[in-house]
Structures are given as C-alpha cells and as structure tokens.
Simulated scan of single mutants.
Amino acid sequence: MSLRVDPTFREALAAARRPLIGMWVCSGSPLVAEICAGSGLDWLLVDAEHSPNGLESLLAQLQAVHGYPVTPLVRPPVGDPVVIKQYLDLGVQNLLIPMVDTAEQAAAMVSAVEYPPRGIRGVGSALARGSRWNRVPDYLRTARETVSLYLQIESAEAVGNVEAIVSTPGVDGVFIGPSDLAASMGVLGEQDHPEVVAAVEHCLRVAAAAGVKVGLNAFAPALAQRYLTAGADFILVGADVQLLARGSERLAAEFIGETS
C-alpha cells in the first residue's frame, strides 16, 4: 500500500492569504490537543521545551490532531540532532527549534533534518512512523520535502545575527520569542518594552526583505495586532494551559469571590 504524508507548514504558509493564527498546546494531553485542533485555528505548537512531553505523549497528540484542519508544529527541548532524528522518525513534519543564535547553529539544524550526503539524519525509515513504515513511496529521496524547519530568534545575539540566520539555505522560517528576548536584553518579563518591540520589528523587516516567513508569540491582543500589521506571517495568541488557568480563576472569582 502506498501512502502520503500531510502537507507541511511551509506549504500552508505559501498558500495562505492572511497570517496564520495558532495557539500553544502545553498540557501533554491528546484530548486537549484534539479539542484545540477542532477550534478553527490554523496551527498548533505542541511544546516539549517547557512542557511535560516525551516521545509517547507527542505521538499520541500527533495522532489525536490528525485529520483536523490544523497544522501541528512541535518544539523539542533543544536543537540536538539525536532528538530531531527521533522526532522526524516519530512523524513530526514541522519543527520549531529553540535558542538558535548564529548562522552556524542554523546550518547545523538544517543538516539534522536531511539525510546524507547533504545532512546527518540517521536512516531508520523502515522502522518509523515518519515514512509510514516505508509505505510512503521513495521516502528516503523525498523526505526533506515532507519536513519544514523553523528556528527561534530569542536572544540579543540572535537579533544581531538575524540577517545571517534567515539567509541560511534550508531554513523555512524564523519565530521570534519575545519572552526570552526580553530577558536577554535585561528587561525580564517586559515583552512590551520599547527596545524589545523594536528588536522584534527589526527581525520582521529583515525576514521579509529576505523572503523568509516569520512568526512570533504575542498573547497581549494589542501587541499581537501590532505585529500582524508589521508583517508577521504566523503568530501564537494563546495556550491551552493559559486558557484553563484564567478560565478557572474567573469561575472562582464569580462564584466564590475574593479569598484571603
């Protein structure tokens, strides 16, 4: 039997006529991931950097959201070639790599998603969901076409190197993380600090000039709208755990009131 894999986030962005709107999925729950997948949002970021996710829970969430009109991206805890190999074999097609500060690191991540001789990805497709256990025709030759790669700009160093990072062949896009960027710039917790906003908008301009897709995280609606107006191609505007935390707090406030 011959099978095919899903379109990538790269393809979704290329076909989009507006910015793509998404949310974090951080709970580690396949049920929550499936609920979010049917919300009408364009994409989900399943996080394993700051969330309780291992290979088994990632697999369950990928299976839970499959078939819904949403594109899942997965963020590993670190840009390690061994971890990336495991994710790709698991069937992750869209990767968001945290903490990429230089063009050299960017090139290493590109190498990690490509088979030799162009890259260093280990060959285990016969054993892996990524190739549907060798049911995807000619997978080894076409595997790179089934994967899209996005790198996080989230430090002052990365902002300084953004031109070189977005110019790295094989990088499909960059994603700006204002929280870590603010910390790196000495204004921890102030994602709306004027210098942080200026750095974000600088990255938006550089990526646009290079013809590279660029996204970011912005939970504050006014800031999200500002960045969308400034040219963001994709954006995260909420998170499953955040919605549950704030929603449950509202219930408590409404029916119990202030507690001492």
Rank of each mutant, 00 (worst) to 15 (best):
G22K: 02
H66F: 10
L31I: 12
G238K: 03
R246E: 15
M1F: 09
L31A: 13
Q86T: 05
E154W: 08
V166E: 03
S184F: 02
V70C: 13
G186K: 08
G91P: 11
Q191V: 14
P116I: 00
R17G: 14
M109C: 11
L236A: 07
L149S: 02
R226A: 07
I176F: 04
Y115W: 07
E254F: 09
G28I: 03
A220L: 10
A37F: 04
A60K: 11
N53W: 00
E201V: 08
D240A: 06
S51A: 15
L95I: 13
I153G: 04
H202R: 14
D6H: 12
V70H: 11
L73V: 05
T259Y: 15
K85M: 13
Q152V: 12
L3G: 09
D89W: 11
L236E: 03
V5G: 08
I21V: 10
P76N: 09
D172F: 01
A182K: 07
W133F: 13
Y68V: 12
G231L: 08
A232R: 03
A209P: 03
V92G: 02
D138S: 13
N53E: 03
K213W: 09
R141T: 12
S179E: 07
L251V: 07
V159A: 00
P7T: 05
V83A: 05
V212R: 08
L20G: 04
R129I: 14
P77G: 12
A103F: 06
G173W: 00
S57P: 07
G79K: 15
A245N: 14
Y68F: 14
E154M: 07
E56T: 15
A198N: 11
P98E: 02
V241C: 05
V136K: 01
V65G: 12
V214E: 00
G28K: 00
Q93A: 06
G67P: 07
M99E: 05
T102R: 06
R10T: 10
D6Q: 15
G22W: 02
G122F: 06
A48Y: 03
V159H: 01
N161M: 12
G231N: 10
M23W: 08
G173M: 05
P69K: 11
V214D: 01
A218S: 09
G231D: 01
S155D: 00
Y68S: 15
L149A: 04
V197H: 12
L181H: 11
T229Y: 11
V100H: 08
V78L: 09
L149C: 05
P19C: 03
